[in-house]
Design a binder for these strands. Structure first.
Length: 673
DNA sequence: AAAAAAC
């Protein structure tokens, strides 16, 4: 029964069969049957650690320096020749050959960030030529057409070539010169537009120019990274880390990832891991007493972990990729100091600055020793950038450039959106119908199902599993190990149905998703945009189905507008709802602080520099009526975002040197890619 | 009334 996997157990057959274990150097260039084996480093331990009873310790998480980086002697990259490599490390990208192999494999299966960031893999670069790009701000550095127009440093250039990034994507063309010039940046660019590289290249390049921070001495007791990259989920941090490592290959730039969900095996050397596994085995064989013994040993090892963590931090880190909670914790403990930070990048910045996250971010950025704006470079990236968030973010920036990149393939209509009127009680039978229909197709395409709550995700997973459908759930209540296992299992097609909360809605690289089902629609239209953007990638068509129930009335209007923009057929009943609800729900019931106010600007990727709204009031395109509700002008009366005179005219080439590329204003149709 | 993010 396929749904045996839903418990995240892997099973003897499923789990072990995929384990590549050690790959000898001479075979590392060989194509990998399943890209995810290599890319995500199935370790021989996962089968063991995923055994029942281990779960609560979150074996899959990383405390610091995921994978290679946390091995006691670090990676081979820094001249250690990989002598400390163990099986786990080898199964990840321990050599660049592996990295390249992964890259190719990922491209083949339409990796998201990879694909768009890379020059190969059947990416339709012609489509990029039409993408409207707009940069506003003072003295905007001109874009480049090629990577070699900018001196990024030989090591990095070599890696760019190794990655087969032949040509920069639109966001890279603009963002890299801006960032290399040391300017602050607020970039509104789609997931999959290559933004990871857009902020990594300049950071790595500058670090190389200014000299590495991490010397071999290790006399420092506090890690002082010179760059910090923050992201809202652990998986995303991990993904960025993996990316960045490829770019920094052999440059000596040290990149460490830090996020929660404490792990044991990830941080121990191979011998410790084996010892740990053996103990676990013995413990299980000898029953209850053994298990108790195992638990004490586990705690012992946990203590060791902290020591290892310390050691690695002290060894030096140039770029720290982290989630906010863990970083704040490490700063509190005095393990990390931000006083040497020269570059700060926030990925998915709008989420990082929304209600739940903003205080943490503000604390990290403003109260934990980081140099103030002006003395550091700050770059914010997101696919959606509501005005309210822009306003918040401007606290972190100085004289920044706002960059807005339109969508790739928006005109091709890669994603078809279907909205169905399904009441909550009918949702289950309805999704069964949908999924069985797909099953009949015999395809192994991936289906991503979004629910509103964690409980809902679990319940749906259970229901689908019990109905014979291979589903697995991912959400924040699962321990990190289960989350990662779910993701792997989904990507590998073992459980081609992933039931997820919004933990999986942003930034994550989940290739081959052919269908996104919004079992529960999100409250926020931006979330919807991010969610459906998981499908329809790199030339493949995608389907996004949403179950619209009476609960979703507030979403009707923005949803209709979004669908119209992307040339989707709007069901008549939905239009009716949109009309009748237009003024009723203005901003009410929204969780996000920017809630109803965001309507002044355009949404779903077509955001504009809010500074330009300041004096002008609504400028065509999207009227302030988007959300019904507030007139956006009401926000601008505060006058509290100090010193921002309204910069040059928003429309590109005029005025103070904004750039405009492409054929139309940036509020182009289409949505995420 | 949610999700995420530290131990």
């Amino acid at each position: 029964m396929s749904w045996d996997f839903t418990g995240g157990r892997g099973g003897a057959g499923g789990g072990r069969a995929r384990l590549p274990s050690y790959v000898p150097p001479h075979l590392r260039n060989a194509p990998v049957a399943n890209p995810y084996n290599a890319a995500y480093g199935y370790s021989p331990y996962s089968a063991v650690y995923n055994a029942p009873g281990y779960g609560q310790y979150g074996g899959g998480g990383y405390v610091l320096g995921g994978q290679q980086d946390f091995a006691p002697r670090g990676r081979g990259r820094r001249g250690r020749g990989g002598q400390r490599r163990n099986e786990y490390e080898s199964s990840s990208s321990s050599s660049f050959a592996d990295a390249i192999a992964e890259k190719f494999n990922e491209l083949e299966v339409l990796g998201e960030e990879e694909a768009a960031g890379g020059g190969g893999g059947g990416i339709n670069f012609e489509a990029y030529d039409d993408i409207p790009v707009k940069a506003t701000g003072n003295e905007v550095p001109p874009p480049v057409e090629r990577f070699d127009e900018i001196d990024l440093g030989e090591g990095l250039m070599q890696n760019i070539r190794r990655c087969k990034y032949s040509k920069p994507t639109p966001v890279q063309k603009h963002a890299i010169p801006i960032a290399v010039a040391g300017r602050d940046l607020m970039a509104c660019a789609q997931t999959g537009s290559g933004k990871t590289a857009a902020f990594c290249f300049p950071i790595i390049s500058t670090i190389l120019k200014n000299g590495l921070n991490s010397g071999p001495g290790g006399t420092r007791t506090v890690a002082q990274p010179s760059a910090l990259i923050l992201s809202p989920t652990r998986e995303l941090s991990c993904q960025i880390h993996e990316e960045a490592k490829k770019f920094a290959f052999k440059t000596g730039v040290r990149i460490v990832v830090a996020y929660g969900g404490a792990s044991i095996q990830q941080q121990l050397g191979s011998s410790c891991k084996w010892a740990f596994c053996s103990i676990w085995l013995v413990a299980h064989l000898s029953g209850d007493v053994g298990l108790r013994l195992f638990n004490s040993v586990r705690f012992f090892f946990y203590g060791i972990c902290c020591v290892v963590q310390l050691y690695n931090l002290e060894k030096g880190v140039d770029i720290l990729v982290a989630t906010p909670g863990r970083l704040a914790d490490m700063i509190d403990r005095g393990r990390v100091s931000l006083k040497m930070i020269k570059h700060l990048a926030l990925d998915e910045a709008d989420r990082m600055l929304d209600m739940g996250f903003e205080p943490q971010i503000r604390k990290i950025v403003q109260q934990m020793g980081m140099p103030p704006p002006g003395q550091r470079q700050t770059m914010l990236f997101s696919a959606t950038f509501p005005d309210e968030i822009q306003r918040l973010a401007s606290d972190f920036l100085k004289d920044y450039i706002f960059l807005s990149v339109g969508r790739v393939g928006s005109s091709t209509g890669l994603i078809s959106q279907k909205i169905e009127l399904v009441q909550d009680m009918d949702k289950r039978s309805h999704i069964m119908k949908l999924l069985h229909g797909q099953k009949a197709n015999g395809k192994r395409d991936l289906t991503l199902v979004f629910t509103e709550t964690k409980k809902g995700a679990d319940a749906l997973e259970y229901y689908l599993s019990m109905s014979g459908l291979p589903a697995i759930a991912i959400h924040g209540d699962k321990v990190q190990m289960e989350r990662e296992r779910a993701l792997r299992s989904f990507k590998a097609g073992v459980t081609p149905i992933l039931v997820a909360t919004d933990v999986a809605s942003r930034g994550l690289d989940i290739p081959n998703v052919s269908h996104v089902i919004n079992f529960d629609l999100p409250k926020d239209i931006d979330d919807y945009v991010h969610r459906i953007g998981r499908t329809g990638r790199a030339g493949k068509s995608g389907l996004a189905t949403a179950f619209f129930s009476d609960q979703n009335m507030p979403l009707a209007k923005p949803l209709v507008e979004l669908m119209k923009e992307s040339n989707q057929e709007v069901p008549p009943w939905l239009s009716e709802y949109a009309k009748s609800s237009s003024n009723t729900y203005s901003g009410g019931g929204r969780y996000r602080r920017y809630g109803g106010g965001g309507g002044g600007g355009s949404r779903h990727g077509g955001y504009d520099d809010y500074r330009n709204d300041y004096s002008g009031g609504g400028y065509g395109g999207y009227g302030g009526a988007s959300y019904g509700g507030y007139d956006s002008g009401s926000y601008y009366g505060d006058n509290d975002y100090g010193g921002y005179a309204a910069p040059p005219a928003w429309s590109g080439l005029g005025g103070g040197g904004g750039y405009e590329l492409g054929t139309e204003a940036v509020v182009a149709s289409g949505w995420d890619m």
